[in-house]
Design a protein around this nucleic acid. Structure first.
Length: 867
RNA sequence: GCGGGCGUGGCGGAACGGUAGACGCAGGGGUCUUAAAAACCCCAGCCCCAGGCAUGCGGGUUCGAAUCCCGCCGCCCGCACCA
């Protein structure tokens, strides 16, 4: 096959765009808004990208995985929906505006154009007609409508809340944007501040969001667990402690404090009550007491970052107030303000039982508060048991506890709650860790929250006919703070009710709102309403969602909430958005660092066979860190575009799939890519070389096939079955391995009948098509000129008869150790098998004349003799 | 601290409780070539080699364990002053 007219290599650079065009012209990946029901539907979706400017290897992995599923399911006869869009609002666009003077919209749409072109080069079977960006007014305007629906349905609340406030940038920061107590951009020490914010009432759905996790059978256990922990259900009691004397001035008078506890059984071990610094009672106590006020101010400035909390010592200040104990007549306990009590959890107040809680014990020891043991560990003597530096938090028997004495932990809880309820001092409750979702952001590049503030009418929703509330284009990014708020005219409007002067809400939505319903919008992206009922009902839930584990909680929980809310409004036919979820691992690459601390790019080093590396320029050894997360700062990113230029999209896809199981982190290696490239070329050569000798398509198989032909057909049908099974189970690396083996088998079967060889080569083209779609088309066109696209073909079926072995090799064990193998016909009966096994030379030696006490035969698998 | 996951050659990994290490990468040897690239062929867990030892370590269940159970050790991830 080396005559001068035949190119020796597969020219991916011309073939790939050609097939992409053929798919587009054939509208191969189009799906109707409302499927006609002739085929079962299958909705495949990958988490849509943020348009940062360039695609990275993580995208390549994500979209390759999704594309394999989409192409495979299409071939399996499903009507597949596989759309793509852009999560396009967000801070980087504003930063770019500030730093380079471009408009966020211009920057974003330019990035989208770049990334769309890059994604298209990957040969993804995406229906691009459904594409939208969340920053399109046609999308966010519909989102504003949804918000007004939520408002009507009572799912929205405006309330004061404690937020992370960046005093330099004049904006609220999400918890994730606070790093070591400082704003991630400004570096300013973040303050806690009380602000009016818009909240979506996700807590209303806490019980069902938790309960429904059980039904998500095709979700990874660990994601479900993370969500369950985040929702954080705990059973306990709310207990009201009456203050000895009321406190507070004006309308803010306090007569009691309420605490939440999971251990009402330990109430008799109480030695103090503590409230959070932000608790109203703390504020009341601080009136006229500068020391308390100073302590509160200090706590507030400390911020909420994990690092700050972890380092902070338990500290507090006695307010001088005292509360009465609900069970002990006449007993009172001091009220402290303590830095370890969280305003966000429970009621922002706790009762301290030092013997039963480590934090309370640390606090009590520090401030010399009493420690009364109330739970006796099993086997301990009440006379001698004492609490040292470790609290006893396990179950035991109650003592020193009045009417609870002698009860176990569970009964004690029940009895304590009964008593509290009887005397009206408390109730048994279920507490949730989940808090309502604050969606207000003081940003420009987001979806405007469609409400007005009128001095006379209060908060007024923007009338639907005035939607969308569009972002103004002439904005000034040079000043810190919210550009919408600074805009000279945008916010000044007339109240639709009274006609008086009103002010637009200048906060925009958290971008997680945008991504909480985009999957539903994809089902009818051009509809004049947020959702088209028939389309959404027909397509949702998403059958297979694919993305990174980093969204395990926020995005996936918010989307579940939104779907439930929309379902409640009768806009969707399902309460859950994603029936199947797959979380892929990261793509990593070795990083290289010189002795003097400079990072070198992969092409700036020479890597030796043992993995060590030297600086190409200086020849000096460099430090190699394998499996390092790709990052610009470490200069170990690999540009997908450059890989496609050099090797083609199919090679990139094949390598990414072949390296390891998709849920694990993978290492991008140059040698791995070239291995994948070699294989793609090898398949092409295999077909090219065979072509001249192949019979016509559909030529009959030999009536009495010879051995080589039978073997090849068996390999073909076994491979079909094995690849199918691997694809069904997301074992793409195994599917790749099976195809490798098959290629080896075809090469070894030169003497097989032509029809069998054609069958095998056609099978290769089709089996490889979900992974290397362009090469598949190229091979198919060589094998069956004019026969249409692989993209339109059904999946192959494995013929079980042909896949069946004629004879099998059985392992023979003696006492569980392998001693030999025998070859027997497939249908051989037990007696034949045992006879052959006993006769085997090595087996005989192992038996060594001893009588066989037991013979085990697992048909088709193994023989084992017990002597 | 709480919760979860994972330990198999030099590396990525395969293996319904049934021949451990498929397949690939890297490696060694060879063919072709003036040479290189490309391609092709062969070898390859370890050892005291008709045998023995090997899936982090120690036990157990089983005719048989990488796989199931118990206990350690190590690594990774999530949550975390959550009352």
């Amino acid at each position: 096959m080396n005559d001068s007219t035949t190119p020796a290599r597969y020219d991916f650079a011309t073939a790939e765009p050609r097939w992409q065009q053929a798919w587009e012209e054939g509208a191969c990946f189009a799906a109707p808004d409302v499927p006609d029901g002739s085929k079962p539907k299958y909705y495949v979706l990958e988490m849509f990208p943020y348009p940062s400017g360039k695609i990275h290897m993580g995208h390549v992995r994500n979209y390759t995985l999704g594309d394999v599923v989409a192409r495979y399911k299409r071939a399996r006869g499903f009507q597949v929906l596989h759309p793509m869009g852009w999560d396009a609002f967000g801070l980087p666009a504003e930063n770019a505006a500030r730093e380079r003077g471009t408009h966020p919209a211009a920057w974003t749409y330019q990035n989208i154009a770049n990334m769309r072109a890059e994604l298209k080069r990957m040969g993804l079977s995406i229906e691009w007609d459904r594409e939208f960006a969340t920053c399109d007014p046609s999308y966010y305007g519909q989102q504003q409508k949804l918000f007004l629906e939520f408002l009507k349905a009572g799912l929205v609340e405006r309330k004061e809340s404690w937020v992370n406030w960046d005093p330099v940038d004049h904006t609220v920061l999400a918890n994730e944007q606070v790093i070591d107590g400082r704003g991630w951009r400004s570096g300013a020490v973040v303050e806690k501040k009380q602000l009016s914010q818009w909240f979506l009432k996700i807590t209303k759905f806490a019980p069902e969001l938790l309960a429904a996790l059980d039904g998500l059978e095709r979700w990874p256990e660990r994601v479900k667990l993370m969500q369950a922990n985040w929702i954080g259900r705990s059973e306990g009691a709310r207990v009201r402690f009456a203050l000895e004397a009321p406190v507070g001035s004006g309308g803010a008078g306090h007569e009691s404090v309420e605490v939440f506890t999971t251990r009402p059984d330990t109430l008799f071990g109480m030695s103090f009550l503590a409230v959070a610094a932000e608790h109203p009672l703390a504020a009341a106590a601080a009136e006229g007491n500068p020391e308390i006020a100073a302590f509160i101010a200090e706590c507030r400035s400390l911020g909420t970052s994990e690092a700050a909390i972890e380092q902070a010592e338990k500290r507090g200040i006695d307010t001088g107030l005292r509360v009465k104990h609900p069970f002990i007549e006449g007993a009172t306990f001091p009220v402290w303000v303590a830095n370890f009590v969280l305003m966000e959890y429970g009621t922002g107040a706790i009762f301290g039982c030092p013997s039963g809680d480590q934090r309370d014990l640390d606090f009590a020891r520090k401030y010399g508060l009493p420690v009364t043991p109330v739970i006796l560990p099993p086997g301990e003597d009440p006379a001698s048991f004492a609490i040292g530096r470790t609290a006893y938090t396990e179950d035991g028997t109650l003592y020193n506890s009045g009417f609870l004495d002698g009860l176990g932990t569970a009964e004690g809880k029940r009895a304590a709650i009964d008593a509290l309820e009887k005397q009206g001092a408390g109730t048994g409750v279920v507490n949730w860790r989940l808090r309502d979702w604050g969606v207000s952001r003081q940003r420009y590049w987001g979806c405007p929250i469609p409400v007005l503030h009128c001095a006379a009418c209060g908060v007024v929703p923007v009338p639907e006919e005035q939607l969308p509330v569009v972002l103004p284009e002439d904005v000034d990014f040079s000043r810190p703070g919210n550009p919408l708020d600074h805009h000279p005219t945008w916010k000044h409007v007339a109240c639709p009710h009274c006609g008086g002067a009103a002010r637009r809400e200048t906060d925009t939505f958290d971008t997680f709102v945008d991504s909480s319903w985009y999957f539903a919008r994809f089902t009818a992206p051009k509809a004049a309403t947020p959702l088209k009922a028939e389309a959404a009902r027909a397509w949702l839930p998403v059958d297979q969602y694919i993305g990174g584990i980093e969204h395990a909680i926020l995005h996936l929980l918010y989307s579940r909430f939104f779907t439930r809310a929309l379902h409640g409004l009768d806009l969707l036919g399902t309460p859950e958005p994603f029936a199947g979820l797959f979380t892929q691992g990261m793509v990593q690459h070795a990083s290289y660092k010189t002795q003097d601390g400079r990072w070198l790019a992969p092409d700036e080093v020479d890597v030796a066979a043992d993995g060590s590396a030297t600086d190409k320029e200086t020849g000096l050894p460099v430090l190699v860190a394998r499996n390092d997360k790709m990052s610009k700062s470490k200069r170990n990113t690999i540009d997908p575009g450059a890989i496609i230029d050099r090797f083609g999209a199919d090679t990139a896809r094949w390598f990414i799939l072949s390296d390891n199981p998709p849920e694990r982190d993978m290492e991008w290696t140059e040698s791995g890519v070239s291995g994948a490239f070699r294989f793609s070329q090898r398949l092409w050569r295999l077909v090219q070389a065979a072509l001249p000798a192949l019979p016509a398509p559909e030529a009959p198989h030999a009536a009495e096939p010879d051995r080589a032909t039978r073997d090849l057909r068996r390999a073909t049908h076994r491979t079909i079955a094995a690849v199918t099974e691997a694809l069904e189970g997301f074992s793409f690396n195994v599917a790749v391995a099976r195809i490798h083996e098959f290629a080896n088998a075809i090469e070894a079967a030169a003497e097989a009948d032509g029809a069998a060889r054609r069958e095998a080569l056609e099978a290769v083209a089709r089996l490889v098509s979900p992974m290397m779609p362009h090469l598949a088309e190229e091979l198919w066109a060589l094998l069956r000129p004019g026969a249409g696209l692989v993209a339109g073909l059904p999946w192959l079926d494995s013929d079980a008869e042909l896949a069946k072995a004629e004879s099998i090799t059985l392992a023979v064990q003696v006492l569980g150790k392998l001693r030999g193998t025998i070859s027997v016909p497939v249908g051989a009966d037990e007696a034949t098998v045992f006879a052959a096994a006993e006769a085997e030379e090595n087996v005989q030696r192992a038996i060594d004349g001893r009588p066989i006490r037991k013979r085990i035969y697992v048909p088709g698998r193994i023989v084992n003799f017990v002597v």
